[in-house]
């Protein structure tokens, strides 16, 4: 049986108390919400914190407030299952409900939280392995090693962003509330992530993500498409979030954000520029889709061969846009259509 390493556990009832414990113990302490990301990593000895601060008891982190007109605020400890089923989110922020509903499997969605998913550790199949395995490999840059076996010549870690919800949150222009001993700050979701497999969040060790603030929906339609081998369990090895606002036949606003490739969620600004303000046609969608091919970086450290993941990015962007436009997902000579991923 794989077991957790020993630690001391705190379950504060208030955010201030959680912040204080973190401040007191410094880098020896880690926070946990659902535990579905941290505990497996700890069992594999990717992390061995001496102190665990459980956020589950903090009531205010479990709340969802607001509506599509004023914006919705989601506590960081709201479970993914709740996010995926909440009426206001389902009605107006459908892409987020969908992304949350596609995370892992039903059990994990009942345990895992939105905050946890936004902070989920970057993944790499040279890193998400047991201590024995990593020892046999000779370790890696992200944990205990000197080189990145994915790209030994490079000076950085290429672990992959693996959060399903972040691309949608970024596409929605959401804001995140972080609390620390220095007080609280708001950060744009797009600024929360860094292009580095190790230091992948713009978050200090003593900061706690407490709330996700979704702006008023303002005519945006959102969706999320996910590539993975199986319809359950698997992390995204490509995720595409699209938010689209139309004005007649024209595109008023669009945000296209990828996940599951690169080390951070990437906003596809070039592709967005091609579409914004233009009359939307199948040919234009095709051009928009092709524009995401170049910025997508996929290396050989997840499921599927990397070039395949890269090739799928334009396909998924195209399909996501077509879905939001209410067009058949796929155009083939015989009009055969396929379901959403």
């Amino acid at each position: 049986m794989l077991r957790l390493p020993p630690f001391t556990y705190y379950a504060p009832a208030r955010i201030e108390d959680a912040v204080k414990i973190l401040a007191d113990y410094g880098p020896d302490a880690m926070v946990v919400a659902g535990g579905t990301d941290l505990y497996p990593n700890m069992k594999r000895r990717q992390f061995e914190p001496k102190i665990i601060v459980g956020l589950r008891q903090i009531r205010e982190l479990h709340r969802i407030n607001g509506d599509a007109k004023t914006g919705v605020t989601i506590g960081a400890c709201v479970t993914l299952a709740e996010v995926s089923q909440h009426p206001a989110i389902l009605a107006s922020y459908r892409g987020l409900a969908r992304a949350a509903g596609l995370v892992a499997n039903p059990q994990i969605r009942h345990m895992g939280t939105l905050g946890g998913n936004l902070c989920v550790d970057t993944r790499c199949n040279y890193y998400d392995q047991t201590l024995f395995w990593r020892q046999a490999l000779g370790y890696c840059l992200k944990k205990d090693g000197a080189i990145c076996p994915v790209a030994p010549g490079s000076q950085r870690c290429w672990a992959v962003t693996s959060t399903d919800t972040a691309p949608v949150i970024i596409a929605l222009r959401a804001t995140l509330r972080l609390v620390s001993p220095r007080g609280e700050r708001l950060v744009a979701a797009s600024d929360f992530y860094r292009d580095d497999g190790i230091h992948y969040l713009n978050k200090e060790a003593d900061e706690i993500l407490t709330e996700i603030l979704l702006p008023p929906i303002d005519g945006l339609k959102t969706t999320y498409w996910k590539l993975r081998r199986r319809g359950s369990f698997d992390f995204p090895v490509l995720g595409v979030a699209v938010a689209l606002a139309q004005e007649g036949e024209r595109c008023r606003d669009v945000r296209i954000v990828t996940g599951g490739v690169n080390s951070r969620p990437m906003e596809m600004t070039e592709a967005e520029r091609i579409l914004i303000g233009e009359r939307i046609t199948p040919d234009l969608i095709e051009r928009v889709a092709q524009a995401v091919y170049r910025p997508v970086k996929a290396l050989d450290n997840t499921d599927f061969v990397p070039l395949y993941r890269k090739k799928m990015a334009p396909v998924f962007v195209k399909r996501a846009l077509r879905e939001l436009l209410g067009w058949p997902i796929q155009e083939t000579p015989d009009g055969h259509t396929s379901a959403a991923g």
């Binding site: 059990q107 009942h110 345990m111």
Partner: peptide
């Protein structure tokens, strides 16, 4: 349903 292996 929750996973008892990931529940403290």
């Amino acid at each position: 349903p929750v996973l008892s292996c990931l529940a403290l």
